[in-house]
Amino acid sequence: MMPAVRRSLVSVGLAVGVPILLVLAWALATQGTQNLYFPTPGKVFDAFTSTWLTGATMTKHVLPSLGRFAIGVVLSIVIGIVAGTAIGATPWLRSLLEPMLEFFRAIPPVALVPVIMLILGIDDSMKLAVIVSGSVWPVLLNTIEGVRAMDPVLTDTSRSYRIRGALAYRYFVLPAASPQIMAGVRLCLSIGLILMVISEMFAASSGLGYQILFFQRQYMIAEMWSGIVLLGIVGVAVAAIFQLVERRVLHWYHGSREVSRG
């Protein structure tokens, strides 16, 4: 068998087989138990279908949450890349702002929520601000770093060809920084998902994160686990989409790495 085919068979096997094994282990561990806190996979599956796969919860809780997550993450990425290239390309701005950025990055968004609530109210804008306030940092700092660490030969070449402004940005700066930016985006996605849940812990009455907490407090533990499973599925889906995008954006980069590895 060709090694490439074998490799892809193995990875498909892992991707499908390992979750099946995990669910089996889960079923074995919870077999025959009446413990409310560790329900069997069957119970969680029932709770999943009855709780989440109904039109009402989808439109009231799941879709609004996912919408806020998407908008929050897109905002983070745009703000991070735009501000990051500006700061990264301007040495004086960088030395001026970098210590401060490190300071703000260290502030946990959860601690800021009551303050953000006072400024922005308790609607979607507050929840978006919570998501952005935490997930913008990896994109921003990675973009600064990526732009700053651009190959000097590349900079000099583009300068000697007098390629400036938008053109240079589109064809030199952005591609050169994109491996770092994409690494930042990957982190931004997972942080954004966590913050989506956290933003619904305050002044909320709907949303995926809110529902999970609600079930926990109502001792509806199987339903709580089913919400966590749904979050996990969202995480997997987001990671898959990211990989598709990354492969398109960075195909030259992966290509050149493979060449240099031989």
């Binding site: 995990l22 889960w26 138990t33 009446q34 413990n35 409310l36």
Partner: peptide, 15 residues
């Protein structure tokens, strides 16, 4: 998961 399984069996007093 195995650890979770242990603790729930070992001290099954939530049942």
């Amino acid at each position: 998961l195995a650890l979770v399984g242990c603790s729930s069996n070992g001290s099954g007093n939530a049942t």
